[in-house]
Design a protein around this nucleic acid. Sequence first.
DNA 1: GCGACAG
DNA 2: ATCTTGTCGC
Length: 283
Amino acid sequence: MSSTGPNSTPPPETSEAGTLDHGAHQHLLQAFQEQQLHLRNQLVTNDDLRTFQVHGSGEGPSPTFHFPELRLVGGVDISFTGEGFGTAVAGLVVLEFPSMNVVYAKFKECRFDLPYIPGYLAFREVPILQGMVRELREQAPELCPQIVLVDGNGVLHPRGFGLACHLGVVTNLPTIGVAKNFLQIDAEKDLTVARVRERMQQILDGGGDELALVGQSGRTWGAAVCTPGTTKPIYISTGHRVSLPTAVTLVRECCKFRIPEPIRMADQLTRQYIRNMADRPSA
DNA sequence: GCGACAG
DNA sequence: ATCTTGTCGC
């Protein structure tokens, strides 16, 4: 092929743990994109009324006021062990709503062949998480969550189909995306990290705590929310079978700290599992 | 070429 | 994501 001269000939081999060769996986990413475009047609953006039916009509701040039918909320997270860049542990937890008591927690060791690429998080994480949801349904169907909070974005994503959407569609479970950092969307040039931070500060100064993430196109991608006592927002977006207003309300009601409990527990317990793993190397 | 970059 | 204990403060 034509490129540079025969002098600076690039080495043919690159595969090995930690080597990020986007070119070598270009075809896989393209296939993955096409798969996503099909799945995206199945995305549901309105509320699942059985889960989110509103109780009463408009007064009295009760913890369960908005979601009288909601009992179980799930949370998923994947933590890395440090032993090789592809070695990780995935966690799926289920909490009781609104007590936020953990009633189910499962972990699974796994390895990744492909690197993390912004915009393609689902490519790595969906397979393992989908398997864990299937296992839960088989082993303890009575503990299957009515909705799952995912550590990553929903429609707040370059192709409008982040990890939360993807996991929601393939499992047919309602999902909400909760990201700890803002992912810029190429098409919305005005929605940059700096601008969002700036506008969020204005909201805070005005006594508010929530910023609608509306791009120049007019589309609402999600919301930046500073949960009580925090200045650094979390970025909430719809995954599947839920509306943004409902997603924001539910996430708020799951927050004891900055990160909603289901995700915080999934993260915390997964790390704990990794620590205990080191003591017992006997496989 | 440069910047941006969920976990 | 991860390297990392104690510590300053409401």
